[in-house]
């Protein structure tokens, strides 16, 4: 079973009125089988983050051609929240700050929303706190995190950890990590990577978007793809990432 099947995907930036402007993704093919970890690497401005946004359903990006199947189902007809409820999670590169919204309240609302979808019992605040505190501990986060406003005044590293905390709590089918390693020191990187590894199972898949090979030392991918100019130009095993680190993306750019 494939979690993701992308065929001949073309994506353009919207002009704000829903009309396509500049094309960013230009005929991308990609398959992610269930339970695997894939990494997409590539230089700046090649459409990696655009792919993340398209998978999540951001309205600024318009699919002009091609298809995306999620567990065999057409993804493009679904709203942002429907995709999330079906099990797509994006750990964002720059999580937004939402002043005044209590982190614990937000996390519990999000979790209960998804539990309801799965036909599971909603958690009351006490059960939720037990669960959240255990996850916080594994991510070496202070419990005071839960009482702060969502991402407000968080350092870059704290925001990334908060994303992984959400990943662990919501336990989606597919985790998309958008430049999760950026802005993290080595210790934080290790903790975040451990979080992702403990999330990953035979049922759960991971798609990593990154510039650097660094993250792949901690989260071992099954397949590495090289994305250049809106297309995947080469795929290989983890060794490909090491090679890229030496040679750069230049030779794929032609």
């Amino acid at each position: 079973m494939n979690v993701l099947e992308i065929k001949d995907l073309h994506v353009a930036l919207s002009d704000g009125e829903g009309r396509p402007q500049t094309e960013i993704i230009k005929g991308l093919d990609f398959v992610l089988p269930k339970g695997e970890i894939h990494a997409i690497m590539g230089p700046n401005g090649t459409g990696k983050s655009t792919l993340t946004k398209v998978l999540a359903g951001h309205k600024d990006y318009i699919v002009t051609k091609g298809s995306i199947l999620f567990l065999g189902e057409d993804l493009l007809s679904l709203d942002v929240e429907e995709r999330a409820r079906k099990g797509i999670f994006v750990a964002f590169q720059y999580p937004v700050e939402i002043p005044g919204v209590n982190n614990a309240y937000f996390l519990r609302t999000a979790l209960n929303n998804i539990r309801k979808m799965r036909g599971e019992k909603e958690l009351d605040p006490i059960d939720f706190m037990k669960l959240a505190k255990a996850e916080l501990k594994s991510l070496k986060m202070d419990p005071s995190f839960l009482n702060r406003s969502l991402n407000e005044g968080f350092s870059g590293g704290e925001k990334k950890r908060n994303e992984i905390l959400q990943l662990k709590l919501l336990n989606p089918i597919l985790a998309i990590l958008d430049e999760t390693d950026s802005g993290l020191d080595i210790d934080a990187l290790r903790i975040v990577a451990e979080g992702v590894n403990s999330y990953h199972t035979k049922e759960n898949s991971v798609l990593m978007i990154t510039h650097y090979q660094r993250l792949l030392d901690y989260i071992r991918p099954d397949v590495v793809h090289v994305m250049v100019n809106g297309q995947i130009v080469k795929s290989g095993n983890a060794e490909l990432a090491v090679e890229l680190e030496k040679t750069g993306y230049e030779k794929f750019a032609s």
Binding site: A56, E81, P95, T109, A110
Partner: peptide, 9 residues
């Protein structure tokens, strides 16, 4: 977008 990505309507 952020909140909806977490499943909120």
């Amino acid at each position: 977008f952020y909140l909806r990505q977490r499943g909120l309507s």
